[in-house]
Simulated assay, not measured.
Amino acid sequence: MQRFLRLVPALVAVMLLAACAPPQATRPTAGEPGLVEEGVAAPLPAPDARPAIARDPAPADSRATGSDAVVALMGEADRQLVAGNADGAAASLERALRIDARDPRVWQRLAVVRLQQGQPAQAEAMAVRSNGLARGDRALMARNWRIIAEARRMAGNAAGAREADARANQLSGEPG
Rank of each mutant, 00 (worst) to 15 (best):
residue 69 A to Y: 01
residue 70 V to W: 01
residue 72 A to I: 04
residue 72 A to P: 05
residue 75 G to W: 05
residue 76 E to A: 15
residue 77 A to S: 09
residue 77 A to L: 03
residue 79 R to L: 14
residue 79 R to A: 15
residue 82 V to D: 05
residue 82 V to A: 10
residue 84 G to S: 11
residue 84 G to W: 08
residue 84 G to V: 08
residue 86 A to C: 07
residue 87 D to Q: 13
residue 87 D to S: 11
residue 88 G to K: 06
residue 88 G to D: 07
residue 88 G to H: 05
residue 90 A to M: 08
residue 90 A to H: 01
residue 91 A to T: 12
residue 91 A to E: 11
residue 93 L to H: 02
residue 93 L to P: 00
residue 93 L to F: 06
residue 94 E to Q: 14
residue 94 E to M: 11
residue 95 R to Q: 05
residue 95 R to L: 00
residue 97 L to H: 00
residue 97 L to I: 02
residue 98 R to S: 15
residue 98 R to C: 07
residue 98 R to Y: 09
residue 98 R to I: 08
residue 99 I to H: 07
residue 99 I to C: 01
residue 101 A to F: 09
residue 102 R to F: 12
residue 102 R to W: 09
residue 102 R to H: 13
residue 102 R to Q: 15
residue 105 R to S: 06
residue 108 Q to K: 11
residue 109 R to M: 12
residue 109 R to E: 03
residue 109 R to N: 03
residue 111 A to R: 00
residue 111 A to N: 03
residue 111 A to T: 02
residue 112 V to H: 02
residue 113 V to T: 04
residue 113 V to I: 10
residue 114 R to V: 00
residue 115 L to V: 10
residue 118 G to Y: 11
residue 118 G to L: 10
residue 119 Q to I: 10
residue 120 P to F: 02
residue 121 A to K: 13
residue 124 E to R: 12
residue 124 E to L: 07
residue 126 M to W: 12
residue 129 R to T: 12
residue 130 S to A: 15
residue 131 N to D: 12
residue 134 A to Y: 06
residue 134 A to E: 04
residue 134 A to Q: 04
residue 135 R to W: 13
residue 135 R to F: 15
residue 135 R to K: 15
residue 137 D to R: 10
residue 139 A to H: 10
residue 139 A to W: 04
residue 140 L to M: 11
residue 142 A to M: 04
residue 142 A to T: 02
residue 143 R to T: 09
residue 145 W to E: 14
residue 146 R to S: 10
residue 149 A to M: 03
residue 150 E to W: 06
residue 150 E to S: 14
residue 151 A to E: 03
residue 151 A to P: 04
residue 152 R to D: 11
residue 152 R to K: 14
residue 153 R to A: 14
residue 153 R to L: 15
residue 154 M to Q: 15
residue 155 A to I: 02
residue 156 G to N: 08
residue 160 G to M: 02
residue 161 A to D: 07
residue 161 A to H: 08
residue 161 A to C: 09
residue 163 E to R: 13
residue 163 E to I: 11
residue 164 A to Y: 05
residue 166 A to I: 08
residue 168 A to G: 07
residue 168 A to D: 04
